[in-house]
């Protein structure tokens, strides 16, 4: 299915969205700082590790970063689980971090 490229130039995209995403980048930095400054359990939380893995994708210069990050954050097993332990989801998958490299997350 053909898509249509954004009708804006790269410069126009940056002009339009830069300040919003500058703020989001600073939010992310201060979130990592906040976790680091906090005391007690959870310093090695898998969700923080998952975001660190996403940051690598952010900087690799290859396309479809959003898709590849979502795959990094996904349960990549393929068979149903026996019983739902809870109704909720955490947003990251601890098992993925054990994999040295996730082939499905490559561009």
């Amino acid at each position: 299915m053909p898509g249509t490229p954004p009708p804006l130039s790269p410069r126009a995209v940056v002009d339009r969205y830069f300040l919003e995403h500058r703020a989001k980048m600073l939010d992310l930095a201060s979130f990592f700082d906040r976790v680091q400054r906090a005391h007690g359990e959870g310093a090695d939380d898998f969700r923080v590790k998952a975001l660190e893995a996403c940051a690598v994708v952010l900087l690799d210069g290859k396309p479809e970063r959003a898709r590849r990050m979502l795959e990094l954050l996904s349960d990549l097993t393929t068979t149903p689980i026996n019983h739902a332990p809870t109704k909720g989801a955490t947003g990251a998958c601890a098992a993925n971090l054990l994999m040295n490299q996730n082939p499905k997350a490559q561009a």
Partner: peptide, 8 residues
């Protein structure tokens, strides 16, 4: 499904 469970 939500979040990490969606793709599967």
């Amino acid at each position: 499904p939500h979040l990490e469970d969606k793709l599967k």
